[in-house]
Amino acid sequence: MNNDEIVWQIVGNRFCSFRVKTNIDKLCRNEYNLTGICNMQSCPLANSQYATVKEHLGVTYLYVKTAERAHMPSKLWEKIKLPSNYTEALKIIDTELVYWPSWIKHKCKQRLTKIVQYLIRMRKLKLKGETKLVGIKKKTERRLKTREIRAEQVARLDKSIEKELLERLKSKAYGEDMPLNIKQEVWEQILADTGVEDQDDQDDQDDTELGELGSEFEMADEDEEEREYVSDVSQDSDSISDDFGDIEDFAQLTPKNKDYEYEYEYNQQKSQN
């Protein structure tokens, strides 16, 4: 025969393996405990009539124990699955524990609320995605830092930006007419420059055509192709001057000496004026 009084006298006053003593309170580690507090009212061992709510793998169950089954420890607890709907679960607790003490009913509902809330929170956190922590490798950091500084030196940013902007101006990216962002004298100079370059190109073409006159007589069929080849050469040179991507190539692509002279003369004229 179980006697609740005797059980509590032993468990409560002498030794209980589930009891945890803190500075303030005595707590209970038994997983069937409704409140987690060590006292007679909420002790699952010293109460032959007891009910609690537990959660396993996201499903909540109502556990009920009555004095009638006290002689069968294997079937001591009646396990009732609670629906995931909170209000329905509350109703089931009400119907299962109809004539039970209101304290147990109330605490069971409170426990259910707590479990439902933490399940919701768990799902939310899962959906949010985990933040992944990445270690900082000091050695690679240091290496990258020096490489970055070196790359910046090699890039010669100001020069490459200047070249790109001039290229845009010369290729009429700002418009065929005089653009808004430029002085008139500079525009005139650029027009003059491009005119000179055109003349150069024409000269080149003349030279090559003269050189190839002999072959023209031999193969009349390939005449057009050869002429195309000539124009391709001039296009190629244009496209190279377009491509200011690689700074290391700049040294070879500096404008012709003629242009430099021109600029020099121009500046002189300006200073004389």
Binding site: A151, E152, E162, Q189, D193, D259
Partner: peptide, 23 residues
């Protein structure tokens, strides 16, 4: 946005064409 050795350098400038050769 200037890419050099896989580092992309960002800069923002105001420019002025001084002559046909200089900015």
């Amino acid at each position: 946005f200037h890419n050099q050795r896989d580092f992309i350098f960002f800069r923002r400038h105001r420019y002025e064409f001084v002559s046909g050769k200089r900015v």
